[in-house]
Structure formats: C-alpha cells, structure tokens
C-alpha cells in the first residue's frame, strides 16, 4: 500500500493534466474505494460504476480540483456522496425502498451481508449462508482479512499476533470446509 504522500503526488500531477498520474491514482485507491462502497450499499455493480464516474469527473474537473492533504479521505467522501445520491434517486423511483431514505442512519454492512448480497443466484446465497455458519469466528475473521481486506498473510499474522504459518493454515482449513459445502 502506498503512503499518503505518494498518493498526493499523483493527485497533484493529475490536477496539472498528467493522465498517467490519474491512472496511477486509480490503481492505488481502487480496492480501498470498492470496499468502502460495498460497506455502504452492498451492490458491486453500482459501486464500480460510481468509482468509474468519480474518476471521469476528476479528470473533467482537474483544473478546478483543490489541493487536498488527505486524498484518500477526499475520494471516500466523494464516493459516499455519489452513492447516497444514486441510492436516494433510486428510492425516489421506487418508494418501497424505505431503507434507503436519508433520515435513517444506515449502519455499515457486515462482511457476510456483503458477500451474500452481491451474489445474484438464490441457491448460492443460501449455500454461502450455510457455509459461513459452519466456520468458527476466528476462521471467518481471517477469511475476511485475507479476501475482503486484501491483507497478506504477514499482515494478518502481525495484526492477530500469531505466526504466518498459523494464519495460512487457518485460512487453508477454512477454504477446505467452505468448498465441501459450496460444491
């Protein structure tokens, strides 16, 4: 992961019209933005669309972009606003979607809610739900850190104070179990 200072360098170069810097900014922030967006709405297509639109808009307005200190948080804020606007727009279109109304403060979706939400297939949704229930809380946490947060085994080991080997083995056993049920 890049340091915030490096991201700021890309940001400032993009502001002056360097397209490659914009692409570098995208490469270095994309997965953070997707995860952030998924926690808000759990709709992967919508999140990806909004991120694409966000970067197109940044490029469009590059000359009037501010010199921000915290580029990542700035992008998060933009994305959140875009997602909420889009959700509000949709719920206006479909009054039944009460949960999207702005007054109710929505809480972050959990990892399990997100991965089940983004699947279209009802049968798979059911199976996933069952499969995740079989895992221990420890296994679930490590699966989340590995596959959703995209951490390396080394980072996981550090955060959960265990050896890299143990972290790997926990993930390995969990995957084995998941596969049995998902088959």
């Amino acid at each position: 992961m890049l340091h915030d200072d490096d991201i700021r360098v890309y940001w400032n170069s993009a502001r002056t019209g360097d397209k490659q810097a914009l692409f570098a900014l995208h490469s270095n922030t994309y997965f953070h933005l997707v995860r952030f967006g998924l926690k808000i709405c759990g709709d992967d297509e919508l999140v990806k669309d909004c991120i694409n639109q966000l970067f197109l808009m940044l490029w469009d307005k590059r000359q009037s972009l501010p010199d921000v200190q915290q580029v990542r948080s700035y992008l998060f804020t933009c994305l959140r606003r875009q997602l909420l606007d889009e959700l509000a727009y949709r719920s206006k279109m479909d009054a039944a979607h009460e949960q999207f109304s702005e007054e109710i403060p929505r809480k972050e979706l959990s990892y399990e809610e997100i991965i089940i939400n983004v699947q279209q297939d009802e049968e798979l949704k059911q199976k996933l739900h069952l499969a995740l229930e079989q895992l221990s809380p420890r296994q679930k946490e490590l699966i989340r850190l590995k596959f959703f947060e995209g951490m390396s085994y080394e980072q996981i080991a550090e955060q959960t104070t265990q050896t890299i080997k143990t972290a790997y083995n926990t993930v390995y056993d969990a995957i084995k179990q998941l596969r049995k049920i998902l088959k």
């Binding site: 692409f23 490469s27 994309y30 995860r35 992967d44 590995k146």
Partner: peptide, 16 residues
C-alpha cells in the same frame, strides 16, 4: 465470491 466481487483492478482501469 470471498472478495465480494470487488472486481478486477486491471479491467477497471481499462474502463476508465
């Protein structure tokens, strides 16, 4: 599935 369909960074960049 486990990455919650975060998408393919490379393809997303191409789209941009």
């Amino acid at each position: 599935i486990l990455s919650a369909r975060q998408g393919n960074g490379y393809e997303q960049l191409q789209q941009l």
